[in-house]
Design a protein around this nucleic acid. Structure first.
Lengths: 232, 232
DNA sequence: ATCGGCAATATGTCTGCACATATTAACCCT
DNA sequence: AGGGTTAATATGTGCAGACATATTGCCGAT
């Protein structure tokens, strides 16, 4: 026989990736149509479509109707971070998880939190808690929950289960935003995380909504040395 | 008619998401089989499969052959970060991009870099450069390139084009890892980024390979105040 | 009671076909 | 020429049917 056969969309994808990496299809160039590739690979167009769609989602191909498919000039690689509950994160590292609630109060949120959530003077649950790995401080959780959006949280025992975990299990959200940054440890943060004031800390700020209703805004301040790692 | 019709996989996906968020399908519970859903929705099983697959990729469903599909107990939401070239990032913010190469030398990499790349004493190109947005320091790029893996980089004019951009366009990679962390500004970093020594800086460390060949390892140190934001 | 193998089953995927849709390129009219 | 309408075209998606594959759970043998 002449041409090798590609009968699964994965094998087609592998071949497409090979051609891109080998510069057989250089950046910016148009690649053959799905129909032509289907003939060449000896499979259905559906299969080629599935493969090309996957590669396009990875950012290596640009596809437009009628215009065709071309190799991305500046491949925008996407790193996907899994946002898990903190207990799972720590246990996944093989360390012992512990949790200490520092504070829980029902108050009006400060202005910045109100602005983030787009609300005005709604009563909110404010929880401050420390997550520990092998008995050493791991991350400080500073959370604001809009009570009207999740009334049942007032019945949760947040001395035992973290607000983080309770919300993941009980307060579904449709969308949200997440921001990563670096911040110098305040006096309070330094105390809780057992580090020097001013130390460089990794911070994750997350805000979530359920439809139009704001749910919660949380600031996770990690102990010094924390690295968030993922594959490309 | 009795039941509404869902004739596109997107509409099926929307309905599935609605049922999950509305707790009609509570966390941990098994949902009907694809075939049953296809009948209920009045569409082909292929369409239901496409929709469920998409929701599963988003982390809200767990699917296993024979075991069926169930709503994730601890939905692992995935945040996807687009890794663009820095020029595009700055121009995308509507700011003027500028680039200043600080240093370029051919040397043996220090031990930590060698370890990250899994090499030993290979000659490497070391480039230090500053990216500016509206004439103020934005990010400091400290890069190590294994020359044997990308020999043509020695002919590139890295005083005009950043190594970042040259590599994206000329040195495809198959995989890599990326780590985010916070770090206190060293004396040198403080000078380049025009901030105080010890300031909390956001750091991205990235290492990429092309197959088995290590390509480059880079450390991007952002000026204070930088936030990496994405949607959930 | 326990272990190993087998059959049932839900998802995974391929095929061939059709039609939908977005976008470009050609064309026509002025 | 210029500008707006139209036709051509590549991708996007739906459908019905078939087979592939991974697991589970049953059942029988020890």
């Amino acid at each position: 026989m002449s041409a090798p056969q590609f009968n699964t969309w994965q094998s087609v994808q592998d071949e497409v990736l090979r051609r891109i990496h080998a510069r057989e299809w250089p950046p910016g160039s148009a690649i053959p149509h799905e129909a032509d590739l289907a003939v060449e690979f000896g499979c259905a167009r559906t299969t080629v479509n599935r493969a090309l769609r996957a590669v396009a989602e990875a950012g290596l191909l640009d596809r437009r109707r009628k215009a065709g498919t071309r190799v991305a000039l500046h491949p925008v690689r996407k790193a996907t971070l899994s946002i898990t509950i903190i207990r799972a994160e720590i246990e996944g590292l093989g360390m012992a998880y512990a949790y200490r609630r520092i504070l829980a109060e029902t108050v009006k949120a400060p202005a910045p939190v109100q602005r983030r959530l787009g609300i005005r003077n709604d009563p909110m649950l404010h929880v401050r808690a420390l997550h520990l790995a092998d008995a050493t401080p791991y991350v400080l959780e500073e959370r604001w929950v809009r009570i009207a959006s999740v009334p049942t949280i007032m019945e949760a025992d947040l001395t035992q289960q973290s607000a983080n975990e309770w919300l993941v299990a009980n307060a579904p959200f449709t969308h949200g935003d997440i921001a990563f940054s670096a911040s110098a440890a305040s006096e309070a943060e330094a105390t809780f995380l057992a580090c020097a004031p001013g130390a460089a800390l990794f911070v994750i700020a997350r805000t979530t909504w359920n439809g139009a209703a704001p749910i919660t805004s949380v600031r996770l301040t990690y102990a010094p040395g924390y690295r968030m790692v993922t594959e490309l």
